Simulated scan of single mutants.
Amino acid sequence: MTAAQADLQIDRPRVADGAALWRLARDSRVLDLNSSYSYLLWCRDFAATSAVARDEHGDPFGFVTGYLRPERPDTLLIWQVAVDEAYRGRRIAAAMLDALFARVAAERPAVHTVETTIAPDNSASRRLFTSFAERHGARLEREVLFDAGLFPDGPHDPEVLYRIGPLTSATGTPPPAP
């Protein structure tokens, strides 16, 4: 962890953060932009499985949104990761992802897998999740989850599922045997 990361304030999003998360997603020019309403709901309903990085004034400059998969409650699915352009290159996304997984695993020890989907041309996300798997000594599997033809709203790259695990919980406990 760098000195800049040690000073990071990473916590749960609040409903009042929804507009800032929407703007961060919009300004990323990479993420699929959801409605502003969805970011407000996300901050209310999925705060326990999401994280924000705050500046010295308490304003969000980065976020990770996630949820526990209903049919696989041992799996934290990461929906979006964004960091304001002025803060990029400082491993903030990695710090948020590590902090989020540690918090979720501490609160829900059964969680031992992280999933996300990444478009093939998103090299920053590929590096982020590959290095997350390496830091945690976990296996990384990839497969196309949604082929490009499934998207009804025009040209869209396929979404590749990255499945990382088994991960050790924040307490150092290995996942339960299947």
Rank of each mutant, 00 (worst) to 15 (best):
T2Y: 06
A3L: 13
A3Q: 12
Q5F: 01
A6R: 09
D7F: 04
D7C: 09
D7A: 15
L8R: 00
D11S: 14
D11R: 15
D11T: 13
R12I: 08
R12P: 04
R14G: 12
V15H: 02
A16N: 09
W22E: 13
L24Q: 01
L24P: 07
L24G: 03
L24T: 05
R26K: 13
R26F: 13
D27W: 03
D27F: 06
S28R: 03
D32W: 09
L33D: 12
S35G: 15
S35K: 09
S36G: 14
Y39V: 08
W42L: 15
F46T: 09
F46V: 09
F46L: 14
A48Y: 06
A48I: 05
R54H: 03
R54S: 06
G58T: 11
G58R: 08
G58W: 07
F61Q: 06
G62F: 09
G62E: 07
F63T: 07
V64Y: 05
G66L: 07
L68G: 11
E71W: 12
P73I: 05
D74R: 11
T75V: 13
L76S: 02
W79F: 05
Q80R: 10
A82H: 10
E85N: 10
A86Q: 14
R88C: 12
G89K: 08
G89T: 10
R90V: 07
R90I: 03
R91L: 11
I92C: 01
A93H: 00
A93V: 00
A93S: 11
A94F: 01
A94M: 12
L97H: 04
D98T: 06
F101C: 07
A102Y: 07
A102D: 15
R103E: 13
R103K: 08
R108V: 02
P109V: 00
P109K: 03
A110V: 08
A110N: 07
E115H: 02
T117Y: 05
I118K: 00
P120T: 12
N122A: 13
R126C: 12
T130G: 10
F132S: 00
E134A: 14
R135P: 06
A138C: 00
A138S: 02
R139H: 09
R139T: 08
R139S: 08
E143V: 02
E143N: 10
L145Y: 04
F146N: 03
D147F: 11
G149W: 05
L150D: 14
F151L: 12
F151P: 10
F151N: 14
D153I: 05
H156Y: 12
D157I: 01
P158H: 07
L161W: 04
L167P: 06
T171I: 03
G172D: 09
P174E: 12
P174V: 06
P175Y: 07
A177S: 13
